[in-house]
C-alpha cells in the first residue's frame, strides 16, 4: 500500500515510524518472554540434578525443590562407594591415547585431502563423507567378532586403536580449515626446498591451532560420554570407564540415588569447565558442521 500512495506531507510518515517502533518493542518483549520460558525448561533439569545430589534418599523422593539440609557427604561417599578413582583413571587413559591418535591421524589425512592435488582425491573424499552417515550398529557385530579373534576384547585396544585411523567428521572439519590457509605459504616453503611433510608440520599445523583444538574438544566429549563402546568391548570390570561403572551400580537393586546424582554432577563438571574455557571452539565446530562448502 505504501508504495502506491505518494507521500505529500511528513506528518503521517513520522507517526508511522513511531508506531512501528512500538510494535517492534512489543515484538522484542514477546521474544524475550519466549526465550526465558524455553531457557527455564532447558535449565531446570540441570538445577534439579545439582539439588538432588545434595539431598538424602528420603528427601529425594519427597521434595523436588531445594534441599533442606545440604548433604555434602554424598560427594565424599560417592568417591568411595564405587571404584571412582579406578574408573576415572581408565577413562583418562583412553582419553589421552585417543586425543593423541585423533590429532596425528586426522591432521595428516585432512592435509592429504586439502593441500595436495591428486587424481581421485575428490571421489575418495565423498566416500569419507558417506561413512559419516553409517550407523555404528551396521558394523558393530562383525567388529566385535574381529576384535575377539584378535584377542582384544577385555582390553582398551578396541576403544583406542581406531582413533589412529581417522574420523570422518574430524577429517571434514580440518579439511575445511586447511583449505583456508594461503597457498603462497606452501609455495614459498617448497621453493626453499621443504618437502610435503615439512610443510605440513612446520607451516600448516602451527596455523591450525583453532581447528585442532576443536577436534581435541570433540574427542574429549565423545570419549568421556561413550557408553556402547565400553559396554561391548570391556568385559573386565577392572577396566570399566566412568560411564560404564555408573551404569553398573545403577542396575543393582535399590541403588543409592543421591550418590549416583553426585557422581553425575562430578562427571558433568569437567565437561562444563572445558566448555566455558573453550566455548568459542565448541560453537564454531558445531556451526561449521552444518555448513558444507
Amino acid at each position: 500500500m505504501t508504495s502506491t500512495s505518494p507521500v505529500p506531507d511528513v506528518g503521517p510518515s513520522i507517526k508511522k515510524v513511531k508506531s512501528k517502533t512500538r510494535a517492534e518493542k512489543l515484538q522484542t518483549l514477546i521474544v524475550y518472554v519466549l526465550l526465558i520460558l524455553f531457557s527455564l525448561a532447558f535449565i531446570v533439569p540441570f538445577l534439579w540434578l545439582i539439588s538432588g545430589s545434595l539431598k538424602n534418599s528420603s528427601e529425594l523422593f519427597s521434595n523436588p525443590g531445594i534441599p533442606k539440609v545440604f548433604q555434602w557427604s554424598n560427594y565424599k561417599e560417592a568417591f568411595t562407594a564405587f571404584p571412582f578413582l579406578l574408573y576415572l583413571k581408565n577413562t583418562l587413559l583412553i582419553l589421552v591415547v585417543n586425543i593423541f591418535g585423533c590429532f596425528i591421524s586426522n591432521t595428516l589425512i585432512a592435509y592429504g585431502f586439502a593441500r595436495i592435488k591428486w587424481k581421485f582425491r575428490d571421489a575418495i573424499f565423498i566416500i569419507v563423507l558417506t561413512t559419516m552417515l553409517l550407523p555404528f550398529q551396521v558394523t558393530m557385530v562383525p567388529l566385535f567378532l574381529l576384535f575377539q579373534k584378535l584377542g582384544w576384547i577385555g582390553t582398551f585396544l578396541p576403544l583406542t586403536v581406531p582413533a589412529f585411523f581417522g574420523n570422518p567428521f574430524f577429517i571434514f572439519l580440518l579439511r575445511q580449515f586447511f583449505l583456508g590457509i594461503p597457498y603462497e605459504l606452501s609455495e614459498s616453503a617448497r621453493i626453499d626446498g621443504a618437502n610435503e611433510f615439512k610443510i605440513f608440520w612446520r607451516i600448516v599445523l602451527p596455523l591450525s591451532k583453532p581447528a585442532i583444538t576443536t577436534v581435541i574438544i570433540f574427542t574429549f566429549l565423545n570419549t568421556w560420554g561413550d557408553f556402547i563402546g565400553p559396554l561391548i568391548f570391556l568385559s573386565n570390570n577392572k577396566l570399566y570407564t566412568l560411564s560404564l561403572g555408573v551404569q553398573q551400580i545403577m542396575s543393582v537393586n535399590d541403588p543409592r540415588w543421591p550418590l549416583l546424582l553426585a557422581v553425575g554432577v562430578s562427571m558433568t563438571l569437567p565437561v562444563l569447565i572445558i566448555f566455558f574455557l573453550m566455548q568459542k571452539y565448541f560453537i564454531q565446530g558445531i556451526a561449521m558442521s552444518g555448513i558444507k562448502e
Binding site: F42, T268, F275, F282
Partner: peptide, 11 residues
C-alpha cells in the same frame, strides 16, 4: 540451550 548436550549419556 547448549548445556544439556554436555551431559554424558549415562547421566
Amino acid at each position: 540451550f547448549f548445556l544439556p548436550t554436555l551431559v554424558p549419556l549415562v547421566i
